[in-house]
């Protein structure tokens, strides 16, 4: 053992600084007090920086990224268009003149006309509302439902979790698009934006539920939860005050991306003819109708397609930025 060797080194009666038995470069050395770091009080709090919560840190991190501002601008624009389409186009998207079928761009009709002779620009502007409505409503639905189911399953565990998880599995086993096609084709009469959003929400919540469950399960093992129990805080109080606020970050990121996905699914349904009825102006429906003349007038596909792509891009980019900003692994310490 090395300590046997250590004992061989004479230390007792060695005068200060002498190197008897000590090899070159290993003599007793101590840093010059003038040059060594100043010793402050042990563990003194650093009061120089401004206080910052996790949310504030996330915000500081997000606002430094270009992608954040780009996606925020896209989302803001799309939401404004969806809320006040009249501001962006004075033309009635449902006013069609067959004589102008597939007409090219002209003053006041920058994108030209579609097969029925309706103004393409107006239809792109007025189509935003359907997509955004379905996306927002569905996301609200799945978030509320998914967070409730997921946090109950994750927090209470045991048989309660077993049952809720099996139910989640069942809904998860049916692919979202297939489920929507199935239900929508049965409801041939009454397909409104609300119905489509409802159908998507009914089959879209398992993803959020699974993520919430995982996050809740990892948060609930923290010692601050045990400390809250020891304070006498009730189970539901702990769940609401301590666990959900700490578990919500990945849910927000996922939900933002999911909003984009729901818009795509709605458009796909409309494209297949089982989404919103032809009477509702929607990008998916317009793309579907453009299909017939795609070889001659591909621009009819391009405009609603680009609007749809840009909108979805805005939301998934935002989801990405939010995830990076809230990711605990990205943090130092």
């Amino acid at each position: 053992m090395p300590d046997a060797a250590a004992n061989d080194i004479p230390t007792e009666d060695v005068p200060e600084g002498a190197a008897v038995g000590v090899r070159a470069g290993q003599a007793h050395f101590f840093a010059d007090l003038d040059q060594s770091p100043v010793l402050g009080a042990v563990d003194a709090p650093d009061e120089s920086s401004a206080p910052s919560s996790l949310w504030r840190d996330a915000w500081v991190q997000m606002r430094g990224r270009v992608l954040f501002w780009v996606s925020a601008a896209i989302i803001l624009l799309v939401v404004l268009v969806a809320l006040f389409p009249g501001v962006f186009s004075q033309t009635d998207p449902r006013f069609c003149d067959l004589s102008r079928s597939v007409g090219g761009p002209e003053a006041g009709h920058w994108f030209g006309f579609d097969r029925q002779g309706c103004d393409v620009y107006a239809r792109v502007i007025f189509g935003a509302r359907a997509s955004v409505t379905v996306g927002v409503l569905t996301t609200l639905g799945v978030s509320v439902f998914g967070v409730i189911i997921g946090s109950l399953a994750g927090y209470y565990g045991k048989w309660f979790d077993a049952i809720l998880s099996r139910i989640t599995d069942i809904f998860f086993a049916i692919p979202l698009l297939l489920a929507a096609i199935l239900v929508a084709s049965v409801f041939s009469e009454s397909r409104t934006t609300f119905l489509i959003a409802g159908v998507l929400a009914v089959f879209g919540w398992p993803q959020i539920a699974r993520i919430t469950r995982g996050a809740v399960m990892s948060v609930k093992n923290n010692e601050f939860v045990t400390a809250a129990q020891a304070l006498g805080l009730s189970r539901s109080g702990i769940l609401l005050r301590h666990i959900i606020p700490n578990a919500i970050a990945p849910v927000i990121a996922t939900a933002t991306v999911a909003l984009g996905t729901f818009i795509v699914v709605e458009a796909t349904l409309s494209f297949l003819g089982v989404g919103l009825p032809p009477s509702t102006v929607s990008w998916g429906g317009d793309i579907s109708r453009a299909q017939a003349v795609i070889r001659t007038s591909p621009q009819l596909l391009l405009y609603p397609g680009a609007a749809l792509g840009l909108t979805v891009l805005g939301f998934i980019m935002m989801g990405d930025v939010v995830r990076d900003a809230l990711d605990p692994k990205a943090r130092t310490r």
Binding site: G305, G309, V312
Partner: peptide, 17 residues
């Protein structure tokens, strides 16, 4: 991001044309 954002039927038609 663009590939995820643009619906498959738009990519499909674009590729086809």
């Amino acid at each position: 991001l663009v590939l995820i954002a643009v619906p498959i039927f738009v990519i499909g038609f674009a590729g086809q044309v």
